[in-house]
Design a protein around this nucleic acid. Structure first.
Lengths: 232, 232
DNA sequence: TAGATTGTTAATCGATTAACAATC
DNA sequence: TAGATTGTTAATCGATTAACAATC
């Protein structure tokens, strides 16, 4: 067993980057790369190489000094650490445009996730086929979760019902939730929630965009000032 | 002008939370709340109150000791700080299920964003109407960006073309990009990129899910051990 | 005034990074 | 051996949090 530099577990910031490394590694593997240096992999993942090496060191010593990392071996180790060597059954609740997009997104299946159930409150949608799966009515939610052993729930409903859906998922035994509804979900401590919120991301961009404009305007002013003062 | 506790600008972590506060404040305003304490607002936003007060203190001193914050006034101040008192024209590139969902998402318009142009490479989609807008061909991209003064580009294309689209957006003058494609985009320093990646979020959940299982299994073992040893 | 709540301080914690000894 | 590159150290930086003086 390799020595592990973990006082208690892997830092959250590192966990959040492992999937990015894994994607870069998968691309390298497809391109037939046998080994990769921390410098190359870091560039592909958009981080600096010191951070990459530190992150990987939390998993163990999987590189070879003077050589680099074996791509296939590292793919396996990162996958294992992330829990992707087993399949996680997923339910999607809410099949509007977004839920539809999620159900059809191929990236899940290839990465250890299996969408096993679709649920929607709209009678028009119930019993329709989406991405090869039948849409179930909301009443069936708890039963589906229990029967299929679903651990991860994806909420793609309108905001007003998200908390109710969340409560039902949790009481049925789901302990990880990916929330696309623009609300802060209240859950027990042992339940993990991740939020995807495009509106928030846009607002963060707006902040930086505004700051750039302000800086540019400041530049204009100082240029005008310089002109007014004249050449020195 | 209020005193500002900013060595240089507002911390990124704070900026990322301001939209969450804004949403909670908007809900409070709709419910007719006149003032709100840091404790109440923090609960609504899912953070602790010390963090909330610290965050708000970067914007200025907008509260009243012993009373709390005026909801409407704080909505305005946070909006202004985020640059939402002006409208940001947005282009969406790629109108598959996801782009479609984004184009139809009402949350944008209400928050200072205006989707002004839709672009797709698929001739089948070009000239169709989505969310009341005509879909333009890819060739029109640069012209649209320039004519409409678009500052923010949303990339909802397949991964293989995302970097090319990004390059074209940037060279046409876009300086903020919201990327839904599962790739790390390379951009000049002055361009801001935010990434939304459901696959990555799911993988982070899988990690925690696996850890919970491991912990539970460990609990079983120690319980079995305790039984084997017998009551003390 | 008494009670409530902000804004700020300072301690703590966690993340990043450069540098380099270890070692292939 | 010489060159390359990892894994780790230690310094630095940024974020979080409890506590409380300021003040409504």
């Amino acid at each position: 067993m390799p020595a592990r530099a973990q006082g208690r577990g892997i830092p959250e910031a590192t966990v959040a980057r492992l999937p990015v490394y894994l994607r870069a590694l998968s691309t390298l593997a497809e391109d037939g790369a046998g080994t990769v240096s921390s410098e190359e992999l870091a560039t592909a993942a958009g981080v600096n190489s010191a951070k990459l090496r530190k992150d990987l060191s939390y998993l163990g010593s999987y590189g070879t000094r003077g050589v680099g990392y074996d791509v296939d071996y590292l793919v396996y180790q990162v996958s294992r650490e992330l829990g992707l060597t087993q399949d996680w059954p997923v339910v999607i609740v809410g099949l509007g445009h977004l839920g539809h997009a999620l159900a059809n997104y191929g990236g899940f299946a290839s990465r250890g996730f299996a969408i096993r159930a679709l649920v929607d409150a709209d009678p028009e949608l119930v019993d329709q086929q989406i991405a090869g799966l039948r849409v179930h009515p909301l009443e069936a939610l708890e039963d589906l979760v229990r029967r299929l052993g679903i651990a991860i729930g994806v909420i793609a409903t309108p905001a007003p019902v998200a908390q109710t859906i969340c409560d039902r998922l949790v009481s049925a035994g789901v302990s990880s939730i990916l929330n696309f509804a623009p609300v802060v979900l209240a859950v027990p401590d042992e339940v993990e929630v991740r939020k995807v919120d495009m509106s928030i991301e846009l607002q963060i961009l707006a902040f930086h965009e505004q700051r750039k404009l302000a800086t540019a305007a400041l530049g204009d002013v100082s240029r005008e000032l310089a002109e007014a003062v004249g050449p020195r």
